[in-house]
Design a protein around this nucleic acid. Structure first.
Length: 574
DNA sequence: GCCGTTTTCGGCCCGACTGTTTTCAGTCG
């Protein structure tokens, strides 16, 4: 029993109940349970066996029973019953932006619309417009939203795909015939969105390994299976490709199956100059003489290059840097000294200021910058000015009685539609530091959105622009800001830009990191955590994406020690 | 369905926007 499978069942129960129009609090209970299960760091089997499931917040008697049923039979009766009433494909309707549970249910009940295809057909032939709650405008909006959903189809968050790929690579590596196995491809380059997982294995005979792979329990469907290569679809929909090569060719194949097209072109160019040939069979020199390359380092060395970290292999100057010995010394976890942008129970976080501070200290941070939401982000429990002042008092008290960590009072202040901040300047002045981000009103023209961000950056109290574009990967495009104008304004005003580590955001986009650091802009690598146990994983994904953006410790705001961090803030400059 | 030292009932994140209505429900963040 995998936690993720149980979480999916709970989520589907919630979705199907939405389509049925059940009590929303009941629905939320299932969705909360799904999230709680997903965030668990222990296997459900063990908790169940030890009778400790009920201790998990969000799991009560009813859901405990359902998990026990799943453990015993591999199914949950309520889930089966709901699927008898409503086809699973109807759950797709809930993913269409602008189509909520109510109208999705109406579309299903009144017009038999039970999939994205059926929704599109009904929108085009006029049947959807006659469903209650729909008019010409909303039909048009649904068609546009459908196009967006289709654009995201077949794309997966790196965060979701990587654990599956790593699990398979570990399993492959343990097969008796397999000498080595690694995750390659876009996942190894740490791309935020991938379309498939690529796995590479070294074995003297490919066929038995491929056959075993195709029979793995996670495989739902075999898409192709030919010479040395097989492609399958996993249970969750992610395609996975396995390439099996001889052990001697493993390192060159890993180079070739990891680099982007641009990176490989540059390697090929250098190889040609050196009269070498780089392909899946290995590295060969004049007269077809094989050059031994036990490791990737040897492949790059044969080309006169330093080993290029996988996340940099995008064909954007890294090969030249490797040739000149000028690859950047990329940011690492231990470089971070300050923990910026963590929420507490004052808004939508789950831990108190004190518990968060203790957790931050245990993780080795010198300072914590507490950022709760401001009043306009009411859904997330944004603080009124009075609340904020009370929170500042509490932070001062906790700071005074807690040794070994400094606690700075900050806020994740909402940037309103016109670019003004959600608290007046005299209130911002009471804080130690100000982070500001966009949380709403995304439908602005590029001119409006750019002016909005420029106005926010011009606020003399702003220190860090949080998730600068406001994108949600595979869900929302974010604000249509002119990136050049944003970077110029941040540089002009000396505002740092956040690299938000939430795997759904990873915002600022890594493609803009070098443009930012070249302008002298500091980046703040932030977890945007809402609970202490999520700090490390969120920071890890933030650091990964910053490394992909060539970010080094000296370009990182929160790699500074506390005193220098404070001195860098705008209010403390002269 | 979950939760609880206001504990076995009655709460459960809430305000703004938008399009469909004809005074407001649905959706979003």
């Amino acid at each position: 029993m995998r936690n993720s499978d149980v979480a999916r069942v709970m989520e589907e129960i919630g979705g199907l109940m939405r389509l049925r129009g059940d009590n929303t609090f009941k629905i939320r209970a299932y969705e909360n349970a799904a999230r709680a299960i997903r965030e668990l760091d222990k296997p459900l089997d063990r908790l169940l066996a030890e009778g400790r499931l009920r201790a998990v917040p969000g799991i009560g008697a009813a859901i405990e029973k359902k998990i026990a049923d799943y453990a015993a039979t591999g199914a949950v009766p309520l889930h089966q019953k709901l699927l008898d009433e409503i086809p699973a494909s109807a759950l797709e309707l809930l993913d269409v932006p602008g189509l909520g549970p109510r109208r999705a249910r109406a579309a299903y009940a009144e017009a038999g619309i039970d999939s994205l295809d059926a929704l599109e057909a009904a929108a085009l032939d006029g049947r959807l417009a006659s469903v209650s709650g729909f008019g010409p405008r909303s039909v048009e909006a649904i068609l546009a939203a459908l196009a967006q959903v289709r654009r995201h189809a077949g794309r997966h968050l790196g965060r979701d795909a990587r654990p599956l790929a790593e699990l398979l690579a570990g399993w492959l590596g343990a097969l008796p015939d397999v000498a080595r196995a690694e995750v390659a491809g876009d996942l190894r380059r740490r791309l935020e969105i991938v379309e498939e997982a690529v796995l590479l294995a070294a074995a003297s005979a490919a066929e038995p390994v491929l056959a075993a792979f195709c029979g793995h329990p996670m495989v739902a469907e075999v898409l192709s299976h030919e010479d040395g290569e097989a492609e399958v679809r996993l249970g969750g929909g992610l395609p996975a490709r396995l390439v099996v090569v001889s052990p001697a060719a493993f390192a060159t194949a890993l180079v070739r199956r990891t680099g982007s097209a641009g990176h490989l072109e540059e390697l090929d160019r250098i190889a040609k100059r050196k009269r070498l040939r780089l392909d899946d069979g290995g590295l060969t020199g004049r007269g077809g003489v094989r050059v031994a390359t036990p490791d990737e380092t040897d492949v790059y060395a044969a080309l006169g290059l330093a080993l290029v970290p996988p996340e940099l292999r995008e064909g954007s100057g890294e090969v030249r840097a490797a040739a000149q010995g000028r690859l950047p010394a990329l940011l690492e976890r231990q470089d971070l000294r300050g923990l910026v942008h963590v929420h507490t129970t004052w808004s939508d976080g789950r831990a108190s200021v004190e518990d968060t501070a203790i957790a931050a200290r245990e993780l080795g941070f010198e300072y914590l910058v507490v950022c709760d939401h401001s009043k306009s982000t009411s859904i997330a429990g944004g603080l009124t000015i009075d609340d904020l002042r009370r929170q500042i008092d509490e932070i001062r008290q906790v700071d005074a009685r807690t040794d070994g960590i400094e606690i700075l009072a900050s806020s994740e202040v909402d940037i309103l539609a016109d670019g003004s901040l959600d608290y007046p300047d005299d209130v911002l002045a009471e804080l130690d530091c100000v982070v500001a981000s966009v949380h709403g009103q995304f439908r602005q023209s590029r001119a409006e959105a750019t002016a909005r961000i420029e106005a926010a950056l011009a606020n003399p109290w702003l220190d860090i622009l949080g998730h600068p574009m406001g994108r949600i990967l595979l869900a929302r495009d974010g604000l249509d800001v002119d990136p050049e104008a944003l970077l110029d304004a941040a540089a002009r005003h000396g505002v740092a830009l956040e690299v938000n580590g939430d795997p759904h955001r990873l915002d600022l986009d890594w493609r803009l990191h070098r443009a930012a650091t070249e302008r002298g802009i500091k980046l703040s690598i932030d977890p945007d955590a809402h609970a202490p146990q999520t700090i490390e994983p969120l920071l890890a994904s933030g650091i990964e994406i910053a490394r992909k953006g060539w970010v080094t410790p000296d370009q990182t705001l929160n790699a500074l020690p506390a005193a220098k961090f404070r001195a860098t803030l705008r209010r403390n400059r002269n």
